[in-house]
Design a protein around this nucleic acid. Structure first.
Lengths: 263, 263
DNA sequence: CGGGCGTTTGAATCAAATCAATTGGAGTGG
DNA sequence: CCACTCCAATTGATTTGATTCAAACGCCCG
């Protein structure tokens, strides 16, 4: 496992792989407007951060780590580009992917409490993160309430999204969890102004399964079933490129909870 | 469901149900010292908060809600006493208990991101929470860096503990999840300077099952097995009072992951 | 071209859910 | 005070969704 993540080129390239959203979903005029607004909001947040504090830009290749469990906590990070997985490791050796991260997401918030990180963050592709010294960020926050609001919003959103994951895992059967995963991913892309009818999965079935609390075979079967039902399709090479044919049906499939779980 | 939680007596009684920890675990001289230190730390945090901002004290009875999903976000809360469950509700009607809260825990952090709460917090017993206007808290934080540190630590800890829940649910079989639940609860009590060899469960088997992603029958069977193996015992009335006979064995039972989950 | 890895699919097995019956308190009212 | 109801918990029998075991396929890369 590579780990030259942080002591790396701190150069600036900024590939900025934003795509314009061509408004592909049928009934989605408002969705597109919302997405555009959100996208502006994310760009605005990034601009606010980089204008208020000195950020250090780090380029990462696939498999490189932004930080790892046990590292002393000194910086927070904001994702500028790329996709990342957050992995926690239990004392007895269990590994759990607890979330996936995109442009605009914060990384490192776990480290604040105890002064040391307690998870690994791994790039799933090339990408760029901005490192922000926590001390400097706090000082800047004192001067700029808007910056503080952005930071707190990030923490709060992290809490709610982690709780949503728990809800998904605890209340949905396997097939619905996979549908929910795809649907949420599409939503996250839309919120960033990226097209959301094509999903490029940057992870293996095993990683999806780990994240959703099931085996890779079950993930594969669930995807096959969704494809058989024409809800999604596969494009290109390694079955990792998903076409969302029917976003509505996909969202519906993500709600098929067993009756016992309702109430 | 009662909901006169907030517009309630704002009076102060402060029952302060701290028990002295008599050092019951065998090898636990250091644990006791740690627990005492933590306890002081929690008391210190509460003291810091109440000295820095004007808190409004709210007494709650069992089943009353501190806030509910959809409520506009205006206050954060800190638990002074009692036990609380945090419940999220999905759009399609699934209910999920995402955490249980104790003395010293923050409530309401979920509301910061969108200006509205997205879960219910329900008292499982009588207790007292302190309501802190968020705007006032931020102002106080600007003046008192230590207060900011306490707030951020609370958010960070919330993130890590939510992720731990996900890890537990995703990687452990049912019996181990129940053991882990008890073990974690005992740990949380110890950290607050409360005795941790007696656990009073304030919730039904169904609620534990919901939290752990299993049915009430499975919870009951897991508890029965732990009791049969002398790891725990039952005391008193409604099988809700647990005696932890062997904390070490309990922690061990919480690690029996299937081999496939290790790596 | 061959090896390795990721994915798919099938068959067998197993852990947990479901269905069902019983017990045990707590509270109520005659 | 006791019969009654209601609800939580326990325990057993059965079913089922997901895992495990196994085999085959496709793709990338040396």
């Amino acid at each position: 496992m590579l780990y030259d993540a942080l002591p790396t080129p701190r150069q600036a390239i900024l590939p900025a792989e934003r795509a314009v959203v061509p408004g592909l979903r049928r009934d989605a005029r408002r969705d597109v407007a919302d997405a555009a607004a959100h996208s502006r909001a994310i760009g605005g947040r990034l601009a606010l951060i980089s204008s208020a504090v000195e950020v250090q830009r780090h380029l990462l290749r696939a498999e490189q780590k932004v930080y790892r469990s046990g590292d002393p906590f000194t910086h927070l990070y904001v994702v500028n580009s790329g996709f990342y997985k957050v992995v926690t490791l239990s004392p007895d050796g269990r590994e759990q992917i607890v979330s996936f991260k995109f442009r605009g997401d914060w990384l490192g918030l776990d480290g604040i409490a105890d002064g040391a990180h307690d998870c690994d963050v791994v790039a799933m592709d090339i990408g760029e993160v901005w490192a922000i010294p926590y001390a400097a960020l706090l000082q800047a926050c004192a001067l700029r309430p808007a910056l503080m609001a952005v930071l707190h919003e990030g923490m709060s959103r992290e809490i709610t999204s982690d709780r949503n994951s728990l809800m998904t895992v605890c209340t949905l059967p396997a097939d619905a969890r996979v549908a929910d995963f795809l649907s949420s991913w599409a939503g996250a892309l839309a919120r960033r102004g990226l097209r959301n009818d094509h999903i490029q999965l940057h992870m293996t079935r095993a990683e999806i399964g780990n994240y959703l609390g099931m085996t890779l075979e079950t993930v594969s079967r669930a995807l096959s079933r969704l494809a058989r039902e024409q809800v999604i399709g596969f494009a290109g090479n390694g079955r990792r490129h998903i076409l969302v044919h029917d976003a509505h049906a996909l969202a519906g499939a993500a709600q098929h909870a067993p009756a016992a779980m309702l109430q």
